[in-house]
Write a protein that binds this DNA or RNA. Structure first.
Length: 192
DNA sequence: AATATGATGCGCT
DNA sequence: GCGCATCATATTT
């Protein structure tokens, strides 16, 4: 197995992110070709889980590059990041969407009712399709090189309340499996 | 098609 | 206790 994962992961998340597009991630019998990712930097990035320092949950982000940082949100969803280097410096790339290129039957079972296009279209859907949960946290992913996209687009990140305007989202231009942009949920309309 | 809202639990202050 | 790197469903155009 080529140790290429660490080579890709090592470095600034802003450089690693576009590099990951087209790579194939395999987990739980399903393979996904990444079409959309998002970079998260360390202490200087208010959108990063590591912004407020090291905690038990984000600990993996401070470790060596090339591992998965999986977290649980909204009481029901998992999201997966690839930790970027260097060690001690928290950085990661959120795996936002992809195209299922292997284990289609398994992915369909995990995401009943979904069209093939939507199987891994979104960070939580991607985890669901691949069977990724907290058990995969801090493990080294099976990630191999793939065909890079013809064209890469960049834009603002999705679903953040802070620093969402930074153009740190990268996707394969025109790919149908890229998730649709949705602005951060507005805060409750003034409670009363 | 577009927008609104409920679900649901953990991490952090 | 509040807020969340979300998604599915219901409701309205």
């Amino acid at each position: 197995m080529p140790p290429t994962v660490n080579a890709w992961a090592e470095g600034d998340p802003l450089e690693v992110a576009p590099r990951l597009l087209g790579a194939v991630l395999t987990h739980g019998g399903v393979s996904v070709r990444l079409t959309e990712v998002e970079a998260y930097a360390g202490p200087d990035d208010p959108g990063s889980h590591a912004f407020r320092g090291r905690t038990p949950r984000n600990e993996v982000m401070f470790g060596p590059p090339g591992r998965l940082y999986v977290y649980f949100v909204y009481g029901m969803h998992h999201c997966a990041n690839l930790v970027t280097g260097p060690e001690g410096e928290p950085g990661a790339v959120l795996l936002r969407a992809g195209e299922v290129v292997g284990g289609l039957d398994t992915a369909r079972v995990r995401r009943p009712g979904s069209t093939d296009r939507d199987l891994a279209r979104g960070p939580a859907r991607l985890c669901r399709a691949l069977g990724i949960d907290l058990a995969a946290n801090a493990t080294a992913p099976d990630l191999t090189a793939g065909e890079p996209p013809r064209e890469v687009s960049t834009g603002p990140r999705v679903g953040l309340r802070h620093a969402a305007e930074r153009p740190w989202r990268f996707w394969s231009t025109g790919d149908p499996t890229v998730s649709t942009y949705r602005p951060a949920a507005p805060r409750r309309p003034a409670g009363r």
